[in-house]
Design a protein around this nucleic acid. Structure first.
Lengths: 213, 213
DNA sequence: TCTATATCGAGAATGTTTTCTTGATAATAA
DNA sequence: TTATTATCAAGAAAACATTCTCGATATAGA
């Protein structure tokens, strides 16, 4: 907690953090000062000890009978995730999905600042989406390098995803959030997260098939 | 495997199935007949024994030195997921995200057939998106009941998500795929999967924060 | 001040998922 | 025919994640 502030943590726990955070922000708006695991767990409909274990990962420590001091807790969670100082990102693929992400204001509260979109389509280049410029994809590597962009978001079709990923790599991008339904072939040291919709769909379908008929 | 063709399986395994399937379909286009776990694992960059265990869940059995017979394997996986016969679905929220999903042709190959979109906005109602009609949200319960729709997809903002979910429930929908960033309060027996973008984002941010600097 | 109680923290126990290991089998080639 | 090898199958082991249990502590109320 002191000398290893960012050591490995269970991925499921990390994934749960934003849910806690959302709830905590809502509570802050209500001027709540102290918050217990029990209460949080009840509100999110999960197990209290799970919440406690997760929060413990952030290094914060609470008081018996009272709980955690909300401002500290929020800061601890945000720091744990890495949302304490926002990070700029580029997005490639100004289709509907890309537009949806460019316009999603929630990202600002999630440490992510999409500064520009890119596309090949000449009719899109030069326009703006949600006040963000759509630029020619060919300019990405140079710009990414000069602006020290580390995060790239891929919202193009399956066919072009790998090419876009390569473009991003050549611009020095080190983390890729891939919405295209293809496995990308990247160097080991690149951080890659696939947003795999069909995976979720499979879970639903199977549950339906199993329970239903 | 015989008398329990649809018994519980590890969720992570289920999530991986579509990736296998995508690869298998690509191989079928290449007229491949037999496929080994080793090959599949290499192509997807995962552990061979993991692939074997996952495929074993579908109930199929392969031949040493040869592998699995591709057509049988594809059928087995599709059956396992529940994609062997397609399921109709309703989508509510014809914004950018909703439009993207309505237009995503991949769903057809994933056992999902979105038959209509719904929205409150009068300027949207009556139009079509990707050949699918956008209808008044108020008509959803009645239509869902008459068409025996079981899957509902929520792509509205956080503010309206719970109301939409309630609307779906009143129409007899039993499985909800929620893209809104709020926890929904639903009866136990409703199948709910949240597509939690901020969860993935948190994983990326943390890895960046941990590895970088 | 003293007691009762809600809550935290830490470690044990359970359950789940992944990886490892070994043995069996079928195709290929000598 | 026989040896070799690539591959599957199944069970054991390990890693990982979640849930349970219990003792400690701070607050509120008697």
């Amino acid at each position: 907690m002191k000398d290893k502030p960012l050591r490995s943590a269970p991925t499921p726990s990390v994934r749960r953090m934003p849910r806690y955070l959302r709830c905590l922000h809502a509570l802050r708006s209500d001027r709540v000062e102290w918050i217990s695991c029990t209460f949080l767990a009840e509100r999110l409909n999960v197990d209290p000890t799970l919440v406690r274990k997760d929060l413990a990962l952030t290094g914060i420590t609470g008081k018996p009978k009272v709980g955690y001091y909300l401002p500290d807790l929020i800061m601890a969670v945000e720091r744990f995730i890495g949302w304490d100082n926002p990070e700029d990102a580029f997005l490639v693929g100004a289709g509907h999905l890309g537009t949806a992400l460019l316009g999603f204001e929630g990202f600002a509260r999630h440490g992510l600042n999409i500064v520009a979109g890119f596309d090949n389509d000449p009719t899109k280049v030069g326009t703006t989406v949600a006040d963000k410029p759509i630029l020619d994809a060919a300019k990405l590597p140079d710009l990414a390098q000069r602006m020290h962009i580390r995060i790239g978001i891929i919202t193009v079709g399956a066919r072009n995803a790998q090419a876009v990923a390569d473009l991003m790599l050549s611009g020095g991008i080190t983390a890729i959030w891939n919405f295209a339904p293809v496995p990308l072939d990247l160097p080991e040291d690149v951080i890659l997260e696939n947003e795999d919709l069909s995976g979720t769909l499979a879970v639903i379908s199977r549950r339906l098939a199993a329970s239903g008929i």
